[in-house]
Design a protein around this nucleic acid. Structure first.
Length: 511
RNA sequence: GGCCGAUUCGUCUAACGGUUAGGACAUCAGAUUCUCAAUCUGGCAAUAAGAGUUCGAUUCUCUUAUCGGCUACCA
């Protein structure tokens, strides 16, 4: 059915009902990767056909999120394009004519039931232990254009009665469908109901109609969306057939599951799991706010890499992928079929890998505000040098500052445990000797200085671990951290000697 | 309830009828280091259950179980 000569065009079509969660971002990402790999277009369409659930700011949030992720749209609400507008609320007029076309062709009908009447029918069915379905068994008994005369229908519409247009589902037909990820699927229409295509409540189409019409008009070739849409695939197939349109290929992605508990990840989950579910911080109109990956210190490349591997894998053992590598390696038939629960630890690991690979200057820029916040003034170059010393031990940008802070500011206090362990009379006396040695040394080359000091310690038959840690406490405040000679060479000899003196004055001679 | 989908280490996954069922994260040891990380080495750890088909099933079929989705004038 799909014509392989058509240029690949895919869309990400979120509903602006709140922040985009990571499942949505992943759907966008897979669409983007697929488009780029095939030299096609990636379109951002906003499906705001639910006036009740519309949330101001959500659309902008979606756009900003995609930008941060490095997912570039070719056409969409922001930059426009040949099929503008890309916001369904601005395409209102289009849908009604298509809905009417379906009525005319005998594929849909008007229904005049009120919400109360439908409610009553559902309650009644429930009381009988059944589930009410608006389908072929009832559509001729209810107030529909199938049961009423043309004249009655015209009158009701003319006098302003509420009406909807419903799809007329075939009574008993096996719909044969193909999904790129799931293969062949068959569903009998007996189990399906007559879905509303056009709503009276807000004079807008439902998702089903708007989606098919727009995908057709926008020449979408592949629909890549979440698995929650699988049940409506037969309806969509039938709609394409009713219109006589060429339908796109479909791929239904496995869902992202809640990290704990059960169910699919939802927007309401916010960051209650101790890590974000949103790409960017989301300040909801109700005043609540949820953390984002960006604000938590994730690099967008790490975030994307982690997300790409959640439900897809290249079949090789490669795990670190740049966006370009992803575009190259991505393939829909390597997308897994089952839902994925993601692992916060693995996400952190990815971030650490990317911090390690990141350019020192870039990290210094990124972290500059944190230094400033702590009242530490450093140049980018100096910060970059400091970061180079410790970046392989950082997971988040804030770690870079934590780990380098004392390169710029003397230790404010001395770690109790370290002091108890190493700040002893013997060690302190030897530290005084070592101080003299250092004073006489140039310490321009950390490795050479280290070699000289180590040799001296050995010649004196002192304990390496004891003395070096005593020195570390004096200079660094705690018995952990980067190479002490790198520290000394970074802060300079004068500062190092001063720190030894300060420590001696404040910690005394030791026990 | 009905319909649809899924089911490999704790987690993400590889193995498209023949492997000692592989990797990564996490975890636990050891090595290394001036310390802490990082790094390296090694360990623990899985085919939901039961029937078939087959010389041979993680892989194909069926049943059961479990999980998930949908079942709105929401998307």
């Amino acid at each position: 059915m799909a014509d392989n000569n058509r240029k690949v065009r895919v869309r990400f079509a979120p509903s602006p009902t709140g922040a985009l969660h990571i499942g949505g971002v992943r759907t966008a990402l897979y669409n983007y990767l697929f488009a780029r790999q095939h030299g096609g277009d990636f379109i951002l369409r906003i499906e705001d056909t639910d006036s009740q659930r519309f949330v101001p700011g959500a659309e902008n949030y979606i756009i900003e999120s995609l930008k941060w992720c490095g997912i570039h749209t070719d056409e969409g609400v922001e930059q426009g394009g040949p099929h503008a507008p890309y916001r369904q609320s601005e395409r209102k007029e289009i849908y009604l004519q298509y809905a009417k076309q379906l009525v005319q062709s005998g594929n849909a009908y008007y229904a005049f039931d009120t919400a109360e009447q439908l409610d009553a029918l559902r309650k009644q069915a429930e009381a009988e232990g059944k589930t009410f379905a608006y389908d072929h068994t009832v559509r001729r008994q209810l107030q529909t254009s199938l049961a009423l005369t043309q004249q009655e229908v015209d009158e009701r519409i003319a006098r302003g009665d509420n009406w909807v247009i419903r799809f007329m589902m075939p009574e008993d037909e096996d719909v044969q469908m193909d999904d790129i990820i799931r293969g062949h699927i068959v569903i009998n229409t007996k189990t399906l109901d007559d879905k509303v295509l056009y709503k009276s409540a807000d004079q807008l189409p439902t998702y089903h109609l708007a989606n098919i019409v727009d995908d057709h008009l926008m020449e979408i070739t592949h629909v890549i969306r979440g698995e929650e849409w699988l049940p409506s695939l037969p309806l969509h197939y039938l709609l394409y057939r009713a219109f006589g349109w060429q339908r796109p290929e479909f791929a239904h992605l496995p869902l992202l599951l809640k990290p704990q508990g059960q169910g699919k990840l939802s927007k309401r989950d916010g960051d209650k799991f101790g890590f974000p579910v949103f790409p960017l911080q989301w300040d909801a109109p109700d005043g609540s706010s949820a953390m984002g990956y960006r604000e938590s210190g994730y690099l967008p490349e790490a975030f994307i890499n982690m997300l790409a591997l959640l439900g897809w894998n290249p079949g090789t053992e490669q795990e670190i992928f740049s966006m370009d590598e992803l575009i190259n390696a991505f393939s829909l038939d390597k997308v897994s079929k089952s839902g994925a629960r993601f692992n916060p630890d693995k996400a952190k690991w990815f971030n650490a890998q990317y911090i390690r690979m990141a350019d020192d200057q870039r990290l210094a820029q990124l972290v500059q505000p944190i230094y400033a916040q702590r009242g530490i003034s450093v140049t980018i170059d100096r910060a970059a040098q400091a970061i180079a010393l410790i970046k392989e031990r950082a997971t988040f940008p804030v770690d870079l500052v934590d780990l380098t802070q004392k390169l710029f500011v003397r230790p404010a206090d001395y770690d109790e445990k370290s002091v108890a362990k190493f700040w002893k009379a013997d060690n302190v006396a030897r530290l005084a000797e070592l101080r003299q040695l250092l004073e006489a040394d140039s310490i321009t080359d950390p490795a050479a200085a280290e070699a000289r000091v180590h040799e001296w310690i050995k010649s004196k038959d002192y304990s390496m671990g004891q003395l070096m840690n005593t020195l570390r406490i004096a200079i660094w405040g705690v018995s952990q951290g980067p190479s002490i000679f790198h520290i000394i060479s970074f802060i300079g000899k004068e500062e190092a000697l001063a720190r030894i003196d300060v420590a001696a004055a404040s910690l005394g001679q030791g026990a």
